[in-house]
Design a protein around this nucleic acid. Structure first.
Lengths: 391, 391
DNA sequence: GAGGAAATTTTAGAGATTAAAATAATCGCC
DNA sequence: GGCGATTATTTTAATCTCTAAAATTTCCTC
């Protein structure tokens, strides 16, 4: 659905304000290309709603002093919640600046249905809210990140891997039980929203986020909006093929998926096979991976070739993506192995050699360790993006 | 640049009208989601400008009979012109329905500069116009397709392979010499525009065009608009890697580019090497390829494995693209080898096996032989897309 | 405390869109 | 041949957003 000019302009003002705060109205004129009168009208509305606050600024020259605008840290509180691969439910309350005001972690028991998962969400959320002592009416939205296929307009979860499939009105169920409106999206999309509003891509309208965890997820922003694909399943970056036909098998049934080389799970599989160790359980995998990395750093094992191969193929895949899409930036959230200088240089080497020459070194690249608060920030970002759409 | 709501709606009406003509105003209400009054206003403007004509329709039931609308075949004439790999300049005059009213072909002499090429364009265009006996003032726009990097807003050509590089105001030079305004774009983009307005993607806002010629070009439509990438160089599909590290070398300097397997040039290189024949000149390559295909069909040579490999890797690449982008349709314009049933099934096999399972068989695929009139239709499409932007 | 400068707000006007009412054009039927 | 039913299109009145320009605010400097 295309945004109207009005929605677009309002979100534009909010984005520029967020990305450059504190900022005066005059600056927003330049940043947005709108006229002063329009900025006055839009910011007045934002101030009236309590989303933005004014802030006197120490004056310095002649003329009427500028009034700085900022996102109101007490304006709206948003709860973000996501299940992790470790079988936990992370819940965090943030303000619209993306600042955390409370964090909770609950254990999830293995469930077989999506409805069962929803019930666990409800219990955990109720507990977290009680713990933080936040009255419900102070919570503006609950943002839910789902590691699966979601319709972010209807709140309906279509599919979560290893759970009974079938559409479930997840957002509706959780929202009704808690008496708070929900927003729902794929968890990788939340990470991308967080980067777009609060992170490395705060000034980029066309960027790609790649999240390396047990699996590999990606999300695309184009023209300042998240791209979902006609079936809502774009950006399955982990399942693009880097070694077609002859490569490693992937759980998706394909051969040579990037995910079969570069995900934490596949690195663990290869490493455990090499070392003759048993593969840890799914929910211990990330911890075991950290342990392995420590052993590797200490020189007690040598899984160097596996990590090098992972870095190499990540470079190849990102190169292909850049060649095809020419984005402004690529943000790679990853586990520690992406932080090792030597592996990083293997990545960059593969990236450079495999990118179409005219596009080499022209794309901004950011590496970050994934932080768990990002999901809640993503939920807050979703509120900011949709604030003029659902009211 | 984002279109205003007004521009967007006008182009939307024109698109729906074009894609479903003849069509009554009532239908456009349903097709566009706009109200009757707005449709009246917009179509009145289109009729006033002579772009659209009304057409009485034989009545059939009760009620006021509908008035059908059609693109006026005498509304605007657009000349499209593109150089080919065979060293010719194809020039064609079409109306806004994309129907050809005249065609001309001129030989280009090898040039070393972009300016020189522009001069040859001018001569050839003058000759074609004289031949067709069309007065200049009847020509609305000259649309120029450039096999290189172009800024379609400014008309400036940044780079054409094997010509002296450096920005040249190609559109300005040609337009001034002929006294007709020009529109300019990359030639693959013109093909995509032609498909979007007149071809297989006339109802798709999110599709990908792949053109297989001596090289491989691609263009992406997203949300009904051509995607160019932040550096204007998106969609270098031919230079994404299908056999990284160990594959065939590509002229771009990369290893394992799709182009090194699937382009006409690479198939010719492999075939000639196998058969011990000399590689034909660049401008004879396509003809020689057709000859080779005939020999193959007659069973006089066996380049089957080369063609099979090409088809296979094309399938892998398209699969990766679908996995990453989830488009509505992919249109593949190609030379004859894409029309051979057996090769097609190799393609589909590779496509299916390498597409992310949830996206298999959900993307519409069109195979077409490239026709040379497509460039002129693309120029006409560019006029339709920009008719509310440059007046 | 008057004048200057820069930021912001106000005002008036232009356009686009919508919903609803009005009008137009035809058919079927008596 | 005229009347009412029916569907298509146009008109009207109101709303809304944005812009440009003028007015106002607020502080600094002299």
């Amino acid at each position: 659905m295309r945004l109207t000019d009005q929605e677009f302009n309002r979100v534009l003002v909010l984005k520029k304000l967020r990305a450059s705060e504190p900022v005066a109205r005059t600056d927003l004129v330049g940043l947005t290309g709108l006229t002063g009168g329009t900025i006055t009208a839009i910011t007045a509305d934002l101030v009236r709603r309590g989303i933005v606050i004014e802030e006197k600024v120490a004056t310095s020259g002649p003329g009427r002093p500028r009034v700085n605008l900022r996102i109101n840290p007490q304006g709206r509180y948003v709860v973000g919640t996501t299940p992790t691969n470790e079988g936990e439910l992370l819940t965090e309350i943030v303000n619209l600046r993306g600042e955390s005001l409370g964090f909770a972690k609950a254990a999830l028991t293995r469930d077989t249905t999506i409805e069962g998962l929803a019930r666990q969400f409800i219990t955990a959320l109720e507990q977290a809210l009680a713990e933080w002592d936040v009255p419900r009416e102070e919570i503006y939205r609950i943002g839910i990140g789902i590691p699966g296929i979601v319709n972010n307009r209807t709140g309906i979860v279509e599919h979560i891997i290893s759970l009974d499939s079938g559409p479930v009105d997840f957002g509706g169920i959780v929202g009704e039980a808690l008496g708070v409106a929900t927003l729902i999206d794929n968890s990788t999309n939340l990470l991308a929203r967080a980067e777009h509003w609060y992170g490395a891509a705060a000034h980029a309208d066309d960027f790609t986020l790649i999240n390396i965890d047990l699996g590999i997820g990606a999300a695309l922003y184009r023209g300042g909006q998240l791209v979902t694909g006609v079936h809502g399943m774009a950006a399955e970056f982990g399942h693009t093929k880097v070694v077609p036909d002859t490569g490693r098998a992937c759980y998706c049934g394909g051969i040579g998926c990037l995910q079969a080389y570069c995900s934490v799970q596949s690195i663990m599989e290869q490493s455990c096979a090499q070392l003759g160790r048993p593969l840890p359980d799914f929910d211990r995998m990330n911890a075991a991976f950290d342990g392995l990395m420590a052993e590797q750093a200490a020189g007690r094992i040598d899984i160097g070739p596996i990590l090098e191969q992972a870095s190499h193929y990540l470079g190849v895949s990102v190169a292909n993506h850049i060649t095809m899409q020419d984005p402004e930036a690529v943000v790679i959230l990853g586990p520690k192995f992406t932080m090792i200088e030597e592996l990083r240089s293997i990545f960059f080497d593969a990236l450079e050699r495999n990118t179409f020459p005219a596009l080499r070194r022209r794309t901004r690249l950011h590496f970050k360790l994934g932080d768990k608060g990002a999901y809640a920030r993503g939920a807050a970002a979703m509120v900011l993006e949709q604030i003029y759409r659902c009211s």
